[in-house]
Amino acid sequence: MNSWDNNPVLTIEHLTMRFGGLVAIDDLSFNVGRGDITALIGPNGAGKTTVFNCATGFYKPTEGRIIMNRSNGEHYLLERMADFQISAKAKVARTFQNIRLFGGMTLLENLMVAQHNPLMLASGYTIGGIFGLKSFKKAERDAVERARYWLDKTALIDRADAPAADLPYGDQRRLEIARAMCSGPELLCLDEPAAGLNPKESAELNALLQYIRKEHDTSILLIEHDMSVVMEISDHVVVLDYGEKISDGSAVEVKDDPKVIAAYLGVPDEEVDGVEEEVGI
């Protein structure tokens, strides 16, 4: 029994997602271990992003259960929750494959929006805020401090008051992670965080993810194509192909799995010959 099956933060059971006749995910089950960095890999069109969209409420799965086990002992069935509640209550945050920042707002404002729910509460649902409630002022200062902390950690502090759309690509990726972290998640879902990064930025990202996992007790589930990132930082790798799980294990186990090699590189010629003989071509 693997560590991720003993104490999972996220459990996906028999997840199936159909779009009309297309089966994007077929009876998928796996666990995301608490405190692990779990990588979800697979060729293009394998259904990785669909798994993310199901887990974060953007799609309603056709079948199956997605269970979030929070560290305080609460359990949430994510497939039944509205998308905004998944972030607010179940504490699952995500980033997007095509970066979705609030481009016309400054970096600081982006991080303030991420702390909407606690601030809304502190402002007495706006009414207290209009009259300048003291406790709201304090909550706002705390929120700014938290934003400053994450801007510092992602090395974006110098541009805190610049519009987010002005940032270079790599910085935008880091800002999106900082914004997700500002919502105080227990599980962080990253959709291709290293896409389009150069090797130096990629290494910095690895360090950032390790730091988040270690210092903030946040488990990470990531989709990635960059194998150097996957092999270096992930504790657990799940491989999808055509919506089905073909391999599940530690990075080393998965790397040598013939099914994974076949999915990524194709099968050796002898095997093709064997099959062709069987079929009779």
Binding site: S87, R94, F102, M112, V113, H116, N117
Partner: peptide, 22 residues
């Protein structure tokens, strides 16, 4: 106030807003 920032965030990107629990 948070509500005003949420309005502006909504104008910028509604899906991102929902992913942040708004």
């Amino acid at each position: 106030l948070p509500v005003g920032r949420a309005w502006e965030a909504l104008r910028e990107d509604e899906i991102a807003c929902r992913s942040l629990g708004i």
